[in-house]
Design a protein around this nucleic acid. Structure first.
Lengths: 195, 195, 195, 195
DNA sequence: AATGAATGAGGGTTCATTCAT
DNA sequence: GATGAATGAACCCTCATTCAT
């Protein structure tokens, strides 16, 4: 793994753990055992790291979005697909917490962030629409979109809040999946098996 | 309003707007037109301000919690009650975002914060149980608690994320109320009228 | 005891314990349970407290100095007299440590301090001369004065350094007395009884 | 001379001149013409500078201590040896004044300081014992140790107090040497020539 | 005499960032 | 690609001191 990648990697880890504001560029460099100058050779500053990570996240979500039609053909395809999606959100979960770090960091970060969140929102609506296509949830477009918003909020909140304080990220993702499943159950014709 | 209160007031405003990490103690003082020394006369530092605000929020929630049994007698009592609750959460909404600011601030802040969040969670479960008592949601205790968690995540997320970017806090609270209402509708016998 | 006296009293205690630089005016006031404003009513500031204490010490030493001829008539009078002297020096021992606090505090403190130290020095020489008168130490004036300087340094150093770390001031004064006695012994005709 | 060394050097100068409490880290940086950030790049704060200087002093004293047996073979070796010792103590003389600065600074400073002072005390006793070996002072172990304490107090006090206000450090050290010599004279068989 | 809120200068420290090598 | 010393702005906080009451 090249230095650039190692920086991004460590940044994600640190940002997720402590929040962007609490992590200094120097701390990232120190943790990696490289000099601050070297870090600045690869990124012009903290903001550029954030921009890069935002782009990475956006890209990962975009790849998933494009695959919806192909990869989800029947009901059973949903869970693994959703799991992939949540894993991406969890990997970049610092992006879905402190909205403020982005609103107040210099230049166009907020715009980029809002665009990404907007994309995620459209994606979640698209996903629920797909489920409706396959399952027939019996929901009109408007309440369905509203439900999609709620599902997104539950997912993002669940990944950030650690209500149960399970250290394992995998467990936390599974728990979030369970929550989404529970919220959808009343609309589903047959009951999905509990796990 | 005394200086102490003005400091707390301005702090809430600033923390909600920019996040605790981005707000300097000096900025608060400057905004109020007082000297940094004066601010430090009233609070020993940023952390003490946070502790005071946490306590205020805790107190406000505690008052609401105690009133559940008395104030909620029938279905129609729910909405205004919930509105009060959301107004408190909205007022202190910075407390329900960056968990990290509290995890890494000095001393007992994280403990206090976790206790408050735990209280809010119990409260939301209690509230849903009360609704069950009155309405008969047809839910067992476990899925009902899970639903309560989801409702809480939707509420807190909705107050922080500004998906719709409405400037008016009142509107945002109403929208959050609408979301909660939508999530509960499938469990309710009669449909509540949309607003 | 009036407020003014209580302030001086507490100041001595605090200065001796922590050094003048480490003691804030506010700490003195707080310790006494009075307001900073009240303290400033009695003294225009820290420096004035120091000036007052310097004067107090000077006065106490002056009173002792004047009494030498009358109170020391024979060899047995020395020890109690020296004990009184050391008690004064011990009481104001912060004055005999950080010379720097006085050199760099505002106005004429250094001059006053140097005058007091000079007085103490002359006093110690006078005292040794008196001992010579009574005992006949067999020392010329110059080496006798030099010895007096040494005795003073041992006394002041002994009161400040706590080589033995005995908490009790009385014990420390006795120990210092013992040291002075030991230094004088080779010059004395008969051996004074060890205590 | 590297920046680190220049900082230590200037710190010694400033601490000796004004006392540790009166010297701000910023003043040291300004005096050296470097930025405060640079100073903090080399030392995490004032305390770390003090720790480094304490260690330096300790090291210098330790080197002298180890050489006693080898370097002092006869009476004539004493004076130059003592002169070296006093020069070290004089160089770091701020360390032998305000005991309080160390008692109240953070963490292990006091412990380190007490250890160094203890070492110096043992050293002075060892030195006097060596003189006894060579010269035969006719002193039992206990009074000899007591005398060693007195000599130490005179030395340290003499370096700090500037009774004579001679600007030249060399002169002050010589004067101190003279005092020690005078205190020892009554125990020595032959009189050392006055200088 | 006394209170206590308020001031403002200054000190300690962090950190994003630059730059010569 | 990489180092690490250096900068300077900004932040947190303390404290001597003032002043209206």
């Amino acid at each position: 793994m090249g230095t650039r990648e190692r920086i991004l990697d460590q940044s994600i880890r640190a940002f997720n753990h402590s929040g962007t504001a609490q992590v200094s560029v120097l701390a990232i460099a120190t943790e990696l055992g490289i000099s601050p100058g070297n870090l600045y050779y690869h990124f012009r500053g903290k903001e550029e790291i954030l921009i890069a990570l935002l782009a990475e996240c956006d890209l990962a979500l975009g790849r998933l979005t494009k695959g919806v039609e192909d990869e989800i053909q029947r009901r059973a395809d949903f869970e693994p697909y959703l799991f992939s999606l949540l894993r991406v959100c969890d990997h970049f979960r610092f992006l879905f917490r402190d909205q403020e770090a982005f609103r107040f960091a210099h230049a166009g970060l907020e715009q980029k962030w809002l665009r990404m969140l907007g994309g995620l929102r459209r994606f979640s609506r698209q996903l629920l629409a797909r489920l409706d296509q396959i399952e027939g949830l019996g929901l009109a477009a408007e309440p369905r979109d509203r439900l999609a918003d709620c599902l997104m909020l539950v997912a993002l909140g669940g990944l950030s809040f650690e209500l149960e304080a399970d250290r394992d990220r995998e467990t936390q993702i599974r728990r979030t999946l369970g929550r989404l499943d529970a919220l959808l159950r009343p609309y589903q014709r047959e009951v999905t098996p509990a796990h």
